[in-house]
Design a binder for these strands. Structure first.
Length: 577
RNA sequence: GGCCCUGUAGCUCAGUGGAUAGAGCAGAAGUUUCCUAAACUUUUGGUCGGACGUUCGACUCGUCUCAGGGUCACCA
């Protein structure tokens, strides 16, 4: 139970008692956070009792207030029309809260072990081109959601399904065979995945003039499926280039996985299950021998599961892969983090799994996210209108370095480089996470990534100021109940206490809604509240020793929570900036 | 055409039944002999795409409608 929930619980009892005196049978009154902090810390709207009590809600609020006996947790009770607004006793909250934060440190906010296992599939790149901005969003989301779930007490398995076979791979291979002259990344001085991507673009260009080339790609795919030696050697070579480069990008972004699955290992999975389903009459066979499922009862269409030649389609291996994963991990939930263009596909997949009698089908979720668009429109890898992940990180690094050279304090060259890396990544990740997942992201290169305002670097800046503060202060504050209880919290301090109190709720809500945005919004609010406090209230040079102590404690708690929150976003805090 | 998603300030976005709809950027005006000015303060700017309905109460729910996007492959 969170600190806040404990407090509210104790207040709730009094409200319930008071309501009962008036004749309202209430066991769990609704409450909300008032729109502004001047109105109080928690509010009870009285609208719903107007009907049963046949009284004006404002009057009911008055009466409920009268019926409340003194409770030390409540500092002040105000009636604003139909609302009963309560101000918490900041001293009591602050003591419990600060004690908990300082005791638990990086575990503050962590929820108890839920004994629930969640498999998360994300990233899932194709090995025919480098990662682009869309993958960055996927990676940032998957990484952050996994961290949020772990912090919420779930056990997670992060899975990356590498799409290393299929016609798209053969297209890069054909272009290499035709125009590659046996070149290598070393010869070209190119990052290996970029070289593979160049051939994919080359193929697309060639296809415009010479549509016949597609036949060659298909032939190559056939050769690959027949285990043709030469084809496999090329495939292995180019896949390694692509994957090595992609792995480098993951490393640079700080993205890690527990399991790598390869489509080339999985693509034959599912066939047996389809035939099994055919025997059970869940599926049916067309005259040409192809096997179908009719999902019209679920509001979907018919869908082919095995081609007339007996080969499998995309969804066939997804069925097999899902079943294999369930056998292997025995997950309680599986989350697919895949773009919104595949919403229909996953609806179909889950419907089929359910028809096949897998009771765990209901535990699979497609967490779809919107596309990343450019002002010029949609990103298209074939047309070369993509924002490449490596190039983008380079650009952001250079921008960070420029600002650091201008403003950075007291940093060695080495520290500057490390700091620029951290700043550039925080700008990118925070930008991509600070959107509702369902929404498309509009990416305007010159404008989107800034280091001012509601950004990752702003949060890092706040941690750098805090770290600097503790470097300059000989002690970090001692939690002494007398000093906390006797302290008269001013507005900035009180706001900070309330903001600190909200962290646990933000963590829980982010976990329930699979939404890193929840953490972003919370951290930004906390950082703003802290910066305002820090701007207007001297800490080291506070008027008295007691006040200094309280403010150091509040600052320490702020730093701990900022660090914990940033970790959930996959962002590093900074000691200096 | 069917289904799904989105439409909130000049721009980019929060806000999903409640109190005057919030941020950032951009624009205007301020704050550094002071713990990091990548900060802080003040300020300009909105018929929440439109219409009707449900409700004591709607940006939030329902129906219709307009606009943009996605999807409806024996591609992945």
């Amino acid at each position: 139970m969170t600190i806040k929930a404990k407090f509210i619980d104790k207040i709730l009892n009094d409200i319930i008692l008071s309501l009962k005196k008036l004749g309202a049978d209430e066991t769990s009154p609704v409450y909300e956070i008032p729109p502004s902090k001047e109105m109080g810390d928690i509010a009870f709207p009285m609208f719903k009792y107007a009907k049963t009590l046949k009284q004006n809600p404002a009057l009911i609020a008055e009466k409920v207030k009268e019926g409340l006996k003194g409770n030390e947790l409540m500092d002040k009770i105000e009636i604003k029309g139909p609302y009963l607004n309560i101000f918490f006793n900041k001293n009591l909250i602050a003591y419990d809260l600060l004690k908990d934060i300082l005791d638990k440190k990086d575990d503050f906010g962590r929820q108890p072990d839920k004994k629930i296992k969640v498999a998360i599939e994300f990233s899932s790149p194709n090995t025919n081109k480098p990662l682009h901005l869309g993958h960055c969003r996927n990676n940032a989301l998957g990484d952050s959601i996994a961290k949020i779930l772990i912090f919420n007490g779930y056990e997670t398995v992060k899975i990356n399904l590498i799409n290393d076979r299929g016609i798209h791979i053969c297209k890069s291979m054909i272009a290499y065979k035709k125009f590659g002259n046996n070149t290598t990344p070393e010869k070209e001085g190119k990052k290996s995945d970029h070289l593979v991507g160049d051939f994919y673009v080359k193929y697309a260009q060639e296809e415009k003039n010479n549509p016949e080339i597609e036949k060659e790609a298909l032939e190559l795919l056939n050769l690959w499926e027949q285990n043709d030696r030469e084809t496999h050697e090329l495939w292995v070579k180019m896949n390694k280039w692509a994957l090595d480069g992609i792995k480098e990008t993951y490393k640079r972004m700080g993205i890690e996985f527990d399991q790598l699955e390869y489509e080339s290992d999985n693509y034959l999975l599912g066939k047996d299950l389809i035939n099994e389903g055919l025997n059970k009459n869940i599926f049916y066979k067309e005259e040409d021998g192809s096997i179908w499922v009719n999902n019209e009862d679920a509001g979907l269409d018919k869908k082919v599961l095995l081609r007339s030649d007996g080969t499998s389609v995309y969804i066939t291996q997804d069925i097999g892969t899902a079943a294999k994963r369930h056998d292997k991990y025995n997950f309680n939930r599986m989350i697919y983090i895949v773009g919104s263009e595949q919403i229909y596909h996953f609806k179909t997949l889950f419907t089929i799994l359910k028809k096949m009698g897998f009771d765990w089908a209901d535990k699979c979720i497609h967490l779809s996210y919107g596309m990343v668009n450019l002002p010029s429109g949609k990103m298209k890898s074939r047309e070369g209108t993509v924002v490449d992940a490596d190039n983008l990180m380079d650009l952001l690094y250079d921008m960070s370095m420029e600002v650091l050279n201008e403003k950075g304090r007291d940093l060695t060259e080495q520290e500057k480089k490390e700091t620029a890396v951290k700043i550039s990544l925080s700008a990118l990740k925070y930008y991509l996470l600070n959107f509702s997942t369902v929404k498309d992201v509009m990416f305007i290169p010159e404008k989107s990534i800034s280091f001012d305002g509601n950004t990752g670097p702003y949060l890092q800046y706040t941690t750098a100021r805090l770290n600097s503060l503790f470097n300059k202060s000989e002690d970090a504050g001692v939690l002494n109940n007398q000093s906390v209880f006797n302290h008269k919290f001013n507005e900035d301090e009180a706001n900070l206490v309330i903001s600190l109190l909200e962290f646990e709720d933000a963590v829980i809500k982010a976990g329930e809604t699979l939404s890193p945005l929840e953490i972003c919004s919370y951290l930004y609010d906390l950082a703003r509240t802290f910066n305002k406090f820090y701007h207007d209230n001297p800490v080291i040079r506070a008027e008295t020793k007691e006040i200094k102590n309280i403010r150091l404690l509040l600052s320490k708690a702020s730093l701990i929570i900022l660090m914990n929150g940033l970790k959930l976003l996959g962002i590093d805090d900074l000691k200096k900036m």
